[in-house]
């Protein structure tokens, strides 16, 4: 519990909500990251430029938060094979399930969408089980 950071997490979360609201209010789009990327890989007319701009903003965001004293954590100790396998599952699962923590967890939940509520419960439960199984092997 020594890592408990309620205030920065709340503030960061509020930024996510603000971003999703702005994108939807101004251009009618959904700030679901798996969807933004997925749409670029199977492009439709008028659907690529805003996605590219959105992802550019995301990649550059590390520069915006630097003056505020926030930086990316050191993750160099992670196992690259495990991370790569996880990437395959995350990419495949989010496309199949039509959303991830942002699309279902924020926008869908905020819209009280039944599909998103079920999906959020399913991926949370699955992730908790996965971490529990890993802890049995002493990997957490």
């Amino acid at each position: 519990m020594e890592n408990f950071t309620p205030w920065t997490s709340l503030a960061g979360g509020a930024l996510l909500g603000l971003s999703a609201a702005l994108l939807m209010l101004f251009s009618g789009k959904i700030a679901g990251i798996s969807g933004v990327i997925g749409g670029l890989l199977s492009p439709k007319k008028h659907e690529s430029s805003w996605r590219a701009a959105f992802l550019t903003g995301m990649v550059l965001s590390v520069l915006i938060v630097a003056p505020l004293g926030f930086s990316l954590p050191d993750i160099s100790g992670e196992n690259i094979l495990l991370v790569s396998f996880a990437g395959l599952l995350v990419g495949f699962g989010t496309r199949l399930g039509n959303g991830c923590t942002s699309g279902h967890g924020i926008i869908g939940m905020g819209r009280f969408s039944k599909r998103s509520i079920y999906a959020t419960i399913a991926f949370m439960a699955s992730a908790i089980v996965m971490v529990f199984v890993r802890s049995l092997f002493g990997a957490v």
């Binding site: 996880a86 599952l89 989010t94 399930g97 079920y118 959020t120 992730a127």
Partner: peptide, 20 residues
């Protein structure tokens, strides 16, 4: 929808990264 979410959750729990 449900299987997609379950597969995604498994990957999320495995490495701690999601797309955003």
């Amino acid at each position: 929808l449900i299987w997609g979410a379950i597969i995604f959750g498994a990957g999320w729990g495995l490495a701690g990264f999601c797309p955003g």
